[in-house]
Structures are given as structure tokens and as C-alpha cells.
């Protein structure tokens, strides 16, 4: 089976600092790919390069998409890109117009999908963190992208917000068969949503492992990902 998204010897250098080193990531259609690593490991840089916000110093990103042009990749990087003085719908409308896909009903459907249809007049700046993240995901869904890149979408959320985002990701996979790359520091949470994991440390992809392999290795332990991560990153042990 061909990879849907693949990076080949991807490198990113800022001056003398190597943020990403020879990275080879493999994502298949319909995967939820969990990206794990300590702060500064290169997760966000990798995601920015995949989206196109940052250019690689060397290497290649191959996207085997059926769609062409902008709108193949939806993103939520670091924080949602929203105008605080506008409503959720107005933010959505601006993005849809920019992509040439403005359709009021479709936008309202997306807002319904992410659970923001009940706040039509509220300015996005007044939203809770969870609502802002959901609006960020709603914006990422405009234009029906094939892949979503979500960088720590549960960052700063309370437990309820985390559950909401998790349910949303499940819904995206179940209802839209969407391919998703997601990074998070909450390993137990990531284990609940992703089916493949990539572990990054010091700009290098240390290992890729499927959830099935993990479950097999740790006898179905709910803390398998955490144990695995500690084994790999701290112990430098290659378990798979």
C-alpha cells in the first residue's frame, strides 16, 4: 500500500540549529497518526513543513492526494487562527471566501458538527479555550480537506474540553474517514485516538509503531504508550 503522506530525508535548519534531521514519516490513508516528543523535539516544525508554512532545508514531502491545489490539508497549528472581534460564522465565511468555497449552509453544517451552532452572535474572542479549539478545527474543515494536521489541539483545555476534542476526532474518522496527524503531550489521550505513533526526539524520528503492536507488546495495558515512550526516549531502547 502506498503512503498517503510521506517525508523523505526531511531536514530543517535554523542557523546552526538542526530542528529536524533526516525525517522519514509514513502516513496511510485513514490513519490517525500521533506525534509524540518532548518540547523542542521538532514536532511543530515538522507539521509546519508538511503544511507549507516553513520550507525544508532539504528533503521532500510527498502527498498522494486525489485533490489538487490549496485545501487538501486542513490545519490547526499552535493556536487557532481567528479574528477575536468576529463571530465564529464570520471567521468561517472569510476563510471560505478566500478558498472560493463559500456556501452558507455548508458552513452552518460544520459549525453544527463541531458543536458551535448555538453561539451565533458571540464574538470568537469571548469563547472558552475549548470553543476556540473547536472553531480552529471547524476552520480546518472548510473546503473538505483530505488530511488534518492538529498541533496539540488539547493544549490548555480542561478535562471537558479534552473529551470534546477527542470525540470530535473520533467523529471525523468515523464520519469522514479523514487522515489526521495529531501531536499531544497527553499520552493517555493520544492513545485513545491514534492508531499509529511516531516518536520524535532531538529532531529525529526515533520510531514509528502501530497501536496494535503496542497493545501486543504491553499486553493491552491502557498506559502502554506512556511506558513505550519512556522506554524509547529516556532509555534509548528500541522495543519494536
Amino acid at each position: 500500500m502506498n503512503c498517503y503522506l510521506e517525508t523523505k530525508n526531511l531536514n530543517k535548519r535554523y542557523g546552526s540549529f538542526e530542528a529536524v534531521k533526516n525525517m522519514n514519516v509514513h502516513i496511510y490513508k485513514g490513519d490517525i497518526y500521533g506525534l509524540i516528543g518532548p518540547n523542542g523535539a521538532g514536532k511543530t516544525t515538522l507539521m509546519k513543513m508538511i503544511i507549507g508554512f516553513a520550507g525544508p532545508t532539504s528533503g521532500e514531502i510527498v502527498l498522494n492526494s486525489e485533490k489538487k491545489g490549496e485545501g487538501v490539508i486542513g490545519n490547526l497549528i499552535e493556536s487557532p487562527g481567528i479574528y477575536g472581534h468576529l463571530t465564529a460564522f464570520e471567521n468561517m465565511m472569510l476563510k471560505a471566501k478566500a478558498q472560493g468555497v463559500y456556501n452558507k449552509d455548508e458552513l452552518l453544517d460544520i459549525l453544527e458538527f463541531v458543536g458551535l451552532s448555538n453561539v451565533p452572535k458571540k464574538k470568537a474572542g469571548k469563547f472558552s479555550l475549548g470553543m476556540k479549539q473547536r472553531l480552529g478545527i471547524a476552520l480546518a474543515l472548510i473546503g473538505d480537506p483530505e488530511i488534518l494536521i492538529l498541533d496539540e489541539p488539547t493544549n490548555g483545555l480542561d478535562p471537558q474540553g479534552i473529551i470534546e476534542v477527542r470525540e470530535l476526532i473520533h467523529k471525523l474518522r468515523a464520519e469522514r474517514n479523514m487522515t489526521i496527524m495529531i501531536s499531544s503531550h497527553i499520552l493517555s489521550e493520544l492513545q485513545k485516538v491514534a492508531n499509529v505513533f511516531g516518536i520524535i526526539s532531538n529532531g529525529e524520528l526515533v520510531m514509528e509503531v502501530t497501536s496494535d503492536e503496542l497493545m501486543e507488546k504491553y499486553n493491552g495495558d491502557s498506559g502502554a504508550l506512556e511506558e513505550f515512550y519512556l522506554d524509547v526516549v529516556r532509555g534509548g531502547k528500541k522495543v519494536c
Binding site: G52, G81, I82
Partner: peptide
């Protein structure tokens, strides 16, 4: 500045031509 600081720029696309 508003477009960049709000992050809305992230919604507008990223290819070179774009």
C-alpha cells in the same frame, strides 16, 4: 499585522504561488 497576529494567515494557504 492583524492578519498575522491573530493567526488567520494560517487559514489562507501556504504554497508559494498562493
Amino acid at each position: 499585522d492583524e492578519e498575522r497576529k491573530s493567526g488567520f494567515l494560517k487559514n489562507l494557504g501556504s504554497s508559494k504561488g498562493r
